[in-house]
Write a protein that binds this DNA or RNA. Sequence first.
DNA 1: CGGCTGATCGTG
DNA 2: ACGATCAGCCGA
Length: 199
Amino acid sequence: MIKLPASFYTCDSITLAENLLGKILYHQTPEGLTGGRIVETEAYMGAIDAGAHSFQNRRTPRTEVLFSPGGISYVYLIYGMYHCVNVTANIPEKPEAVLIRALEPLYGIPLMQQRRSTEVLKNLCSGPGKLCKALNIDKTCNGLPFTGDTLYITEDTNPISFTVQTAKRINIDYAGEAKEYLWRFLIKDSPFISVKPKP
DNA sequence: CGGCTGATCGTG
DNA sequence: ACGATCAGCCGA
């Protein structure tokens, strides 16, 4: 169980989004430990990215944590009912982040099934809102370091081999040209991704 | 199957 | 007013 060091996160969000594939995300709670392999991510490139909450360095109470160093959690509420978890990238004042979009469930599966009200493994963490519900990630997790003991990311002790696939990011129709960028990263052919990319 | 829609609330 | 979503419902 080797946690990724802080230096792992000191790169741009595109690099980080690709490098996070295959790593293991955990959340330790009083109910137990849950976690899984990261199989889908999206890069948000901050000031220059019309799809990002921090586009043009937009700085508000919500986006403040994006201006932190890399390796910090950014959790926000979407559509009034779901949470999404991001990993900040790069150095302070570069508000980049990587959205975690899907996990392959590995640890605490019964607890995740209970939280999600489904038994079906491929539906447990196959979307940003779903995985936050399965791992019980909410706004109280905002600002936590991924190098800590509550919400953390490790190497895979028994790494699988995989091919990286890129695709357009999902649900950012308002982002103009930026919606065309191939800033979504997936483990090719994983059954645990959210939406199948176009071939 | 694929497409549509209501739920629900913090944010700006 | 609307969204880095999801589940359920509809018609084919």
